[in-house]
Amino acid sequence: MSHYAVEIDPTNLNTSHGQVIDLLGDAHRVLDVGCWAGDLGRLLIERGCRVSGFELDPTAAAIAAEHLESVVVGDLDSAPLSGHFEAGSFDAIIFADVLEHIMDPVGVLADSVRLLAPGGRIVISIPNVTHGSLRLALLQGRWRTTDTGLLDRTHIRFFSRDSLLQMVADAGLVTTELRGTTADPLGVEVDVDPGDLPPGVLAWVRTRPDALVYQFQLAVRPAREGEVPTEPELVVGKDPRWVRPGPSAEGFMTAAWRAELVERDRVIGLESTAETATAEARRLRGVEKRLRSRVAELEQAAQQEPAPSTVRRTAGRVRRRLRRR
């Protein structure tokens, strides 16, 4: 199913393959759905696994068959996976960058449970449609498909964290582990023009939930009777604080960060001026209140007895001062 060809580094947990391998745990009998030419399967075999494959492309499947225990050519949209393998024959089934390419991922997941041995698991890797690059691209009215990546032109399904977990639950499965690989919004293949973004938008998007998660990886298992699914904590392969943009975007981001710092300092200065003005206004209101009180006292004294010239002069000065305010 997959058209991706990459070098696999099992030690790099900020790659989907690295996370998938880690999530397999001690699984021995593995089915790689969408195995392509068998790159992942060969690595798992080197680690002691018995690996079978399922692949749509017959040319890629023929290459994989030279290394894997068995490879079946088939289409998940036309026939169930369980029709090609014996029930209970796998400790783990991998759907790495596959479910977004098929019409009924819920049905495929539910059907694949039949192939799991007791205690078995399904491992999934899937792109995140809420990644910051797509948020920024949509702000600019861009949705340009590519050969690979988040907007692979063969994707027919798109998943956020919520919709992904809901798909798993709808298939009668429970998510036991939730992982993510991270990438900066300006460090991936999505078409974004950083120079056309309003001030502050990039920094804001980078702080939104899941905006730095490029792909999700999950380990799931069949739900037990009466079990209520809970969402596990997301564990990322690389701390988002250390995720950097691509080389072509570094200059823009540096300039943007500097501009934001200048704007922040300007706002802080305005806030400080406003605070000073507010304090002065409070002081003047206090002075006015005291003066009005003094005028009232003087007027009351003048009404009770003939006001001496000093009282009249004082009241006059106070009234003039209040009028000037």
Score class of each variant (00 low, 15 high):
Arg142Ala: 03
Arg142Met: 05
Arg142Glu: 01
Trp143Leu: 14
Arg144Glu: 13
Gly149Asp: 03
Leu150Glu: 02
Leu151Met: 13
Arg153Thr: 09
Ile156Val: 15
Ile156Asn: 01
Ile156Thr: 11
Arg157Ser: 01
Phe158Trp: 14
Phe158Asp: 00
Phe158Cys: 01
Phe159Lys: 04
Phe159Gln: 01
Phe159Ser: 04
Ser160Cys: 08
Ser160Lys: 08
Arg161Met: 10
Arg161Ala: 15
Arg161Glu: 15
Asp162Met: 10
Ser163Asp: 01
Gln166Arg: 14
Ala169Cys: 05
Asp170Thr: 03
Gly172Trp: 02
Gly172Asn: 08
Leu173Gln: 10
Leu173Met: 07
Val174Ile: 10
Thr175Lys: 10
Thr176Trp: 03
Glu177Ser: 13
Glu177Tyr: 04
Leu178Cys: 05
Gly180Ile: 01
Pro185Glu: 01
Gly187Val: 07
Glu189Lys: 14
Val190Arg: 12
Val190Asn: 05
Asp191Arg: 11
Asp191Ala: 11
Val192Met: 06
Val192Arg: 02
Asp193Cys: 06
Pro194Leu: 07
Gly195Lys: 04
Gly195Thr: 08
Asp196Leu: 13
Leu197Asn: 10
Pro198Met: 14
Pro199Met: 13
Gly200Leu: 02
Gly200Thr: 11
Val201Cys: 08
Leu202Pro: 04
Leu202Ile: 07
Trp204Leu: 13
Val205Trp: 05
